[in-house]
Design a protein around this nucleic acid. Structure first.
Lengths: 225, 225
DNA sequence: AGCATGCTTCGATGGCCATCGAACTATTGG
DNA sequence: CCAATAGTTCGATGGCCATCGAAGCATGCT
C-alpha cells in the first residue's frame, strides 16, 4: 500500500549513500569522517546522509567519546546489499578487474564472515570432508563437523542456543557460489584474526593473509588447493 | 566503485515505480494502461517509468498486437522485492490490516508460486509427510515425494533437468516463514488454477479459493487444518 | 477509409534534495 | 582553560526528475 519499500530503496539510491553502505559491508564500524573520506564528500554532507540512514534503520549508531561509529543494522541489511550486488554484477559481467578487485575476489569480509574465492574454497572443503551438508541456505552441520569444531574450541551448544542459524550459506557476488555464513562462519573469521593468520586491509573489506597464516588456515580447515 | 547498486535502487526508489513493481509481483504480465491505473498516474507518466524499468533490466517487455505486456525480469528481481518487503514490514509490524490485506495474507501469488498462510501450511504439510526435507533455501524432494508428485502427473525428471531448482523455500513477508518456491512450487500453483480450485483476484496478487476447491486442495496435498 | 484505442515522445513546470561554505557544539588532551 | 579534533546545523545554490498537457504514431475494429 504505502511506498515503504521505495523509502528504503531511496536510501540506497543515492550514490554517496551507496558508497557508505558498501564500505560498511566489511562489518567493521567506521567513524563519520572515515565514511566521508571513503565516499569522497565533505563531513557535512556525510553527516546528513548518515543521519538519514540511521533514521531509516539501515545503520546503527554507537557514540564513543567524541567519535560516532556507524555499522550496518542487522544481517538483513547486509543481505539486501549483497543481493543488489549479485543483480548488478551479473548484469554487466566482464568488467575490468584492477589489482584491488583481485584482492577483494580472493578473500574479503562479508559482514561478519569470510567470502571470496577462499571463502568458497573453505565451504567446499568442509562439505567434501563430510562436516557440512550442502542443502541450500540453512546448511547442516554434521556430527563429524560438530566434533571437529568442538576440538578447535567452539562451544557448539552455545552457538546452537542462539536464534541465529549456526550454518548458513551466502551467495558470493564474485564467485556466484556459496560460502559459509551463520554464527559458525562468524566464528571462523574471528578465529582467523585471533590466530593472526590475516588482517583486514585499509579498505576494511579485503582480508590479507600472511604466507604462514594462509598455510595454517589450509592445514587446520583441511583445504586443498 | 561504480554506483551500480544505486542505479537499481533508484529504479525502485520512486513510489510510482514501486507500485508498478509490486503490482507485478503477482507474476501476471500487465499492460501499460493497467499499470498506469494501478499506480494512479497518467499513461504518459507510466510509460516513462516503464521504459526506465525495462532499460534497467528490471522488467521484460512483450509486444502483442497493440498491447504492451510487462512482467518482472527473472526471479532475482522478485526476490529482491520480496526481501525489501521483509525488511520494511518487520520494521513497522503492527499496521492496520484491512480486509484486502487479510485476503492477501491468506493466499497470494509470489511471482509464480503460492504464498501466504496457505502456502506456508502447504509447505509444512509436505515436510511433515516426509516428502520434503526442510534444509534451507534449496529444500530437498525425497523419494517418497517424487513418487507422490509423479502420481499427480508431474514429470519430475523434466523438472530436474532444468537449471532452476525443483524445490526452493522462499521467505514469506506476511508469515515470516518458508513456503514452497522453485519449479515444483510453480507446478503446484498452475495445478490449482488448472483444476479450477481458485482464481486470481482483480488485484492480481491474491488468490481466491472456492469452498470446494479449498477442500480438494487440502485433500490432495494432505493439508490438515 | 475512418475512427477508436493503446501507447509514446516532446516540452514546460515545479518540487525535492545533494552539496558545500560558514558557523556552531562537543569532546579530548595538554 | 585553551587549542585541536570530531561532528552537527543552517542556509543558499543548483541540478535532477516526476508529472502532465498536447501532439504524434501504431494497431485494431467496422
Amino acid at each position: 500500500m504505502e511506498p515503504n519499500i521505495s523509502v528504503v530503496a531511496g536510501l540506497i539510491a543515492d550514490p554517496t549513500r551507496a558508497k557508505i553502505l558498501t564500505a560498511l559491508m566489511g562489518g567493521k564500524a567506521l567513524t563519520a569522517t572515515e565514511l566521508a573520506i571513503e565516499a569522497d564528500v565533505t563531513p557535512q554532507t556525510a553527516s546528513s546522509h548518515l543521519s538519514k540512514l540511521v533514521e531509516g534503520d539501515l545503520l546503527q549508531l554507537r557514540k564513543q567519546g567524541r567519535h560516532r561509529y556507524f555499522q550496518l543494522k542487522g544481517l538483513a541489511v547486509a543481505e539486501l546489499l549483497e543481493q543488489l550486488l549479485v543483480m548488478t554484477t551479473s548484469a554487466q559481467s566482464k568488467v575490468q578487474t584492477g589489482p584491488n578487485d583481485t584482492r577483494l575476489q580472493y578473500a574479503r569480509v562479508c559482514y561478519d564472515h569470510l567470502a571470496g574465492e577462499l571463502g568458497v574454497t573453505l565451504y567446499d572443503a568442509l562439505v567434501a570432508q563430510g562436516m557440512l551438508i550442502d542443502a541450500g541456505e540453512q546448511t547442516q552441520l554434521t556430527e563429524k563437523g560438530k566434533l571437529y569444531f568442538r576440538e578447535l574450541g567452539v562451544d557448539v551448544a552455545r552457538l546452537q542456543s542462539k536464534k541465529r542459524p549456526v550454518c548458513k550459506s551466502c551467495l558470493d557476488w564474485s564467485e556466484r557460489r556459496n560460502h559459509l555464513a551463520g554464527s559458525l562462519g562468524q566464528w571462523v573469521l574471528d578465529y582467523i584474526f585471533e590466530k593472526g593468520w590475516a588482517q583486514r586491509d585499509l579498505d576494511a573489506r579485503s582480508v590479507s593473509f600472511s604466507k604462514a597464516g594462509l598455510k595454517a588456515f589450509k592445514r587446520v580447515f583441511l583445504v586443498e588447493l
